[in-house]
Design a binder for these strands. Structure first.
Lengths: 341, 341
DNA sequence: ATTGGCACTCGTGATGGTAGAGTGCCAAGG
DNA sequence: CCTTGGCACTCTACCATCACGAGTGCCAAT
């Protein structure tokens, strides 16, 4: 069952050629380009075995063969030798993502864009999760009669706000006092703890000001929940240029699914568990719209803690040798850019 | 030169049939469906005239005819009778956009989505501009050593923030004082005035705190400039289902152009001048990627003032009769939802 | 001015034929 | 037992051809 060295070599060569050319590979060409002194007939025998074992498939009787998702998987796990990031790409990455973050949102955006540009596929960045963030500052601002704007600031500089409607008008002094209380009691505490304690303390209270506090708590909860969903993605239109996707009727489903994000985010959160590049090939993701696609992702860490994941989505036939180091490098740089100087 | 009643009737009928069926309309069918007692030969004569005058064109010698952008323009201006919004659609609109705004961003998003869903085309909403907003509150928060987070709040509840790096550490007291000064001096003034005055006052100053203020001013400027760019758009993928766009090689360009937004935003700002629904048909927009598309847009007003514009982008062949009232109605509802209760 | 007739044009779809690529299998040879 | 050359077979892509249908433009008759 174990593949012998020659079969592996041929499989590697076949996958590489197919990635490069995009067409099925035949025995004659493979025999020529594999570098072994071997006749096409021999190659045919090997290929027939590889097909039986599920690594290859022929689109039709007399085309060459292309890798299945099993073939790609074996290629990626056992045969692939990643090439180091080209100086050119590296320069570009550093230039675009930089080492310093003027603004988190902008850096995330830049990373998404550069991933898409350099790979000619769709790039994505899961926004950093905030579960472990520290509450830095709270403000309550009387906007209009019976409208209060609550603003939360975390230690990482995230700002989130929410409009709260109250039943009775609240004076600026009341609000300032509430904010002071809030900051004194909860400032410097982790967001999760703040919410937990508030939830406990406000259980039965009915005071108007407590209603404001409770709404503020909901804002805090939303800050934690919201980023369950948030993900930047860019360059889906590149798929239109990729024949294996553009031709498929699935393209539309794929675009819709990616917009929805929900399941995708779930898949990516799984891949945040490790600390390495992860690759989902075709149906491996267990997510129907991605059947014809591969996802290459890498988690990124801020201040030593994994907070998000980024990567690219493209057709199964993608140049993994270059994509992997690129995704890896982008994750490193993004993490560094968002970390403490 | 003026078209006689019969020619107008035939043009109207032809455009309607082409919108409904999507294929070129021939003389036989037009003669039958137009309701006039007229032979195909007569219809051919009229059609030939209309073609000479630029209203129609044949894709090839022996297909029927389809409207040119000039034909659509005439149809829209002179022949079209808009149908009132269906009860069903109206109910849906009210339900989704509602009368009250829990959160501006969410309402804008809902409006974009509903436009796209109901029209099966791409929907867009230009975010409300802030030029006339009043500065309500400013905060400076020391985030880390030599990092200050500046937060601006306007009377409409917009919150914008920016990380400012300083050369020297600034104490919380200094920052509080600066914020107090800022709020006392500029609170309640229009954003534009604040920036203008700051720009004047800080011209030559070199104090560290003034540097913070200057950065804050830049944030204010960004608030005004940024929304020059901001626009929500959703449902571009619907274009894939529209044969006249999906087939075209221009689709990719269109998608990229729409992502870029820059020129599109410029076009839309033009259409904010009036207070009515505006329609750009094909090349009328003067924007190459939109050559095959029409844009139906309507400005929306908050508290009696036009602050933005929304609409849909789709192929020239779209059901204007229904699109126009839908876009109009959405604009009304969105304006109401964002206005003072 | 309108109409029927008619020749003409053009796209579409079906048909068939050919070339090229590639396969599977077999028998011969190391 | 593995490898190889040979060979018949299969399938696609491409092209040419053909008939059909839809539709036009023009003209002569009303």
């Amino acid at each position: 069952m174990a593949m012998d060295a020659r079969a592996r070599h041929l499989l590697k060569s076949l996958v590489e050629q197919h990635i490069a050319k995009g067409v099925p590979v035949g025995s004659r060409q493979l025999a020529r380009d594999a570098g072994l002194n071997i006749s096409p007939a021999t190659v045919r025998n090997v290929m027939a075995d590889l097909e039986d074992e599920g690594y290859l498939i022929s689109p039709h009787t007399s085309a060459g063969r292309i890798p299945t998702h099993v073939g790609y998987r074996f290629f990626v796990d056992a045969l692939l030798r990643v090439v180091p990031l080209s100086a050119e790409s590296n320069r570009l990455l550093v230039h675009r993502i930089g080492f310093r973050a003027p603004d988190t949102e902008q850096v995330l955006h830049a990373a998404t864009g550069i991933l898409s540009e350099l790979t000619h596929m769709a790039g994505f960045v899961r926004v950093p999760r905030r579960a472990t963030r520290i509450l830095r500052h709270v403000d309550f601002i009387a906007l209009r009669e019976r409208e209060v704007l609550a603003i939360f600031v975390t230690d990482k500089g995230d700002v989130e706000n929410r409009l709260i409607r109250t039943e009775h008008p609240l004076g600026a002094a009341d609000l300032a006092q509430a904010a002071n209380f809030f900051n004194a009691t909860y400032g410097g505490r982790p967001l999760q703890e703040v919410i937990h304690n508030l939830q406990r303390d406000l259980q039965q209270s009915r005071h108007e000001m407590d209603r404001v506090l409770r709404s503020a708590m909901e804002l805090g909860e939303e800050m934690l929940e919201e980023d369950q969903q948030r993900m930047l993605i860019e360059g889906e239109f590149q798929w239109l240029d990729q024949p294996e996707l553009a031709g498929s009727e699935r393209l539309r489903e794929l675009l819709v699914a990616v917009r929805q994000k929900r399941d995708l985010v779930h898949l990516l959160d799984e891949s945040m568990r490790g600390s390495d590049v992860r690759i989902f090939i075709g149906e491996e993701s267990g997510y129907a719209p991605l059947t014809d696609c591969s996802v290459v992702s890498a988690p990124y860490s801020v201040d030593g803690e994994v907070v998000g994941v980024l990567g690219v989505i493209g057709p199964m036939r993608m140049p993994y040798q270059q994509i992997i180091p690129l995704v890896d490098g982008t994750a490193q740089l993004l993490g560094r850019a968002l970390s403490q100087p």
